[in-house]
Design a protein around this nucleic acid. Sequence first.
DNA 1: ACCTCAAATTTGTAGGATGATTGGTTCATT
DNA 2: AATGAACCAATCATCCTACAAATTTGAGGT
Lengths: 225, 225
Amino acid sequence: MSISKTNRLSLVEQVVSQIEALIESGEWKIGNQIPPEMDLIKQFDVSRNTLREAIRSLVYAGLLVTKQGKGTFVRSSSALGIAFQRRIQQSSLLETLDVRHALEREGAQLAALRRDQEDIEKLRSNIEVCRIAAKAKDIKAYEEADIQLHKSIMGCSHNSLLIDLYEHMEDSLHDSIHQIIELSSEANFHLTLHCNLVDAIIEQDVNRASEMVNEYIAQFKKNLE
Amino acid sequence: MSISKTNRLSLVEQVVSQIEALIESGEWKIGNQIPPEMDLIKQFDVSRNTLREAIRSLVYAGLLVTKQGKGTFVRSSSALGIAFQRRIQQSSLLETLDVRHALEREGAQLAALRRDQEDIEKLRSNIEVCRIAAKAKDIKAYEEADIQLHKSIMGCSHNSLLIDLYEHMEDSLHDSIHQIIELSSEANFHLTLHCNLVDAIIEQDVNRASEMVNEYIAQFKKNLE
DNA sequence: ACCTCAAATTTGTAGGATGATTGGTTCATT
DNA sequence: AATGAACCAATCATCCTACAAATTTGAGGT
């Protein structure tokens, strides 16, 4: 008896893999429309059912999105991110905040260790946008700028897994930032904290970066009560 | 024009949701066989195509597994584990370790803050099993005991999201790499570190708990080189 | 130039037919 | 009775055609 424990892949699985590869390689770019079913049937040489089962799988995983009458589009290149996002939606804000603390602190510390010149410029640019929005008291703009800043910080870690997970917490981010901003008394403190955080990262002060994140998260928790 | 941005759910999505609910509620238990396609077609009152697309989606997500000629079985109740597994297989081990550090440190600190009497007993029991395995120089048993201890520590955080993430990541990590633990050395640095960590948690010493995790992960990274 | 409505495009759903794999059953042979 | 070969039933895998629903496109008339 041959020991080929792994059965051959089904056609659907093969098609799924090929589509994953197309997305992963960037040949199918995020946001773009993919060829219609009929074209893909010819391209992959499978039946419509087989192709649709493959597409459906990737839709459920969050990589694709279909719109009846319009077409199918690439939504994301990370199935993990979507799964994470779904799990978060079932959790309380407090639980999510713990996880966010874990990721943000790690990200800030790694950022302080690994940031390069390009990162520094981006951080400075991001924090400047925050300042301007704060001065103009444009809450919506500040919210957006703050999120961009946080993403940039995580980007400095140069860890794609960490970045991926963090970016899919965005819904939770919006909630918490929105709450903070409404208390205008704390908005200034909020901005100062972030300036300090960016400084710490630029100066490669790992401990201070960590402390700034701690304070920042603690402030959120306080507001949740 | 009405502003109902969310279109109605497709039949496939409805069936997927219903199956998810059946699995989540435990009505379909993990490992068990689910009814054959024909029965489900009648139960959900949809066509074979629709049902199969739903099943396929859940197979891809890792909740179900189909075996031609035998049937379809429940594999897991969470899509996160599979998503992690796939991602970790492509991503570098160092990146995964950063994320693990983030989760473990947060978990240890929260454990120190939130552990109750029941947790303490469980930790003591876990560490005792580690000691016995170390004394017997049974590496396999020690590795297993070590994993159990770590899961117990995360359990002390009483944060189900954090626990879920950690367990899924740990499972995927564990199949891809086995830690090199030196049980032979007299000092037995690994065990000592863990004893200290448990002590810190019991004594609610947050900072020491954090430091122990740092050392533990640093050691892990060093062993990989 | 603008509006209307029909046609084309694209995904969604239905149902039938056949192939492939597995598990069990029957039945003849030893 | 034990064994093994052939057959059959259950189940998933793939392919096919047909029609429905949503959207875009374009022709034709005002």
